[in-house]
Nucleic acid binder design. Structure first.
Lengths: 152, 152
DNA sequence: CCATATATATGCATTTTGCATATATCACGC
DNA sequence: GCGTGATATATGCAAAATGCATATATATGG
């Protein structure tokens, strides 16, 4: 099999894994989180990219900005994130975790770390670090390049 | 930053990439595909795992089996997949690409390969192959193990 | 043969989604 | 400064997707 096909298979498997984890009721309930299934992925991405705005988020997750806008309002009403005016662009609002949101994500993070350590316990440190480095190198690039022009 | 957090960030980025690609209208239209956004991911996974059934697929993608069941019917009505009786379990039906589905996925695959080759053109072959190998090693494992049991 | 589990399908209410549209602000050329 | 088109966000609305409950057929294991 060509390396690109092997890689693609792995990427799909990773995506499915993440999508399952994002909504995994065991993981969420272990962290004491009770959240609509569409909300946790956004919360996790705010945690990962503090200061992100709705437009950037919608590009990131591949959903319409109107969809993201409404979900963000929900997260704010739940008290999990705060929206602060962008200091240099008064159209935009920057998203951050609230204290409550941070507390929740800290719990999730602890569980995730414990679980990852279990998963990689029989890996050599070198292989593990190589994987992390290579993955970071891969996703750091502009994956859009080379795809034919604009959406819709 | 702890390696598990760096890894998690990369996994999220990969998931977002795949989710965007799965619905990327530029990619799909370049392959001459016109498909509801929820259908392509399933079609891609049938292509990846020929003979998979609805139950396995619903576990894989993290959606209810009823949802997957209906989407699979749609794919069949569109002539993109075929459902054949499972020879050893007459409750189940195994999913395969139809000729038309295969033709579409072949186009998508060609575009994807070209695009991946562009993305990795300045990588060493060794790094690229290491990444593929390590990723395969990682996703081959049982990622479920270690998550606390359902609490409900 | 019976009880329980599994694979799929469907009715139904709810949630999620995207498009069209609206408003406010920005960026830039003039 | 002013106009023009782009951008960030929000919302009405209809359509699509989703999950749960339930039903049927088959399997599996006493």
């Amino acid at each position: 099999m060509h390396w690109s096909d092997r890689l693609y298979r792995s990427l799909i498997a990773v995506a499915d894994l993440v999508n399952r984890l994002d909504i995994d009721s065991r993981l969420l309930s272990a962290a004491g989180v009770k959240l609509d299934r569409a909300l946790f992925p956004l919360l996790a991405r705010v945690a990962m990219s503090p200061g992100i705005n709705v437009a950037e988020m919608s590009n990131l997750v591949g959903r319409d900005h109107s969809t993201v806008s409404r979900q963000v309002v929900k997260l704010e009403k739940l008290g999990l994130i705060v929206r602060t005016p962008d200091p240099v662009d008064s159209r935009a609002r920057r998203l951050h975790l609230s204290d409550q949101g941070s507390a929740i994500m800290a719990k999730v993070k602890a569980i995730r770390r414990q679980w990852m350590e279990g998963h990689f316990q029989d890996w050599s440190e070198k292989d593990r670090d190589d994987l992390v480095d290579l993955l970071q190198e891969m996703i750091g690039k502009d994956w859009q390049t080379g795809i034919p022009p604009a959406r819709t």
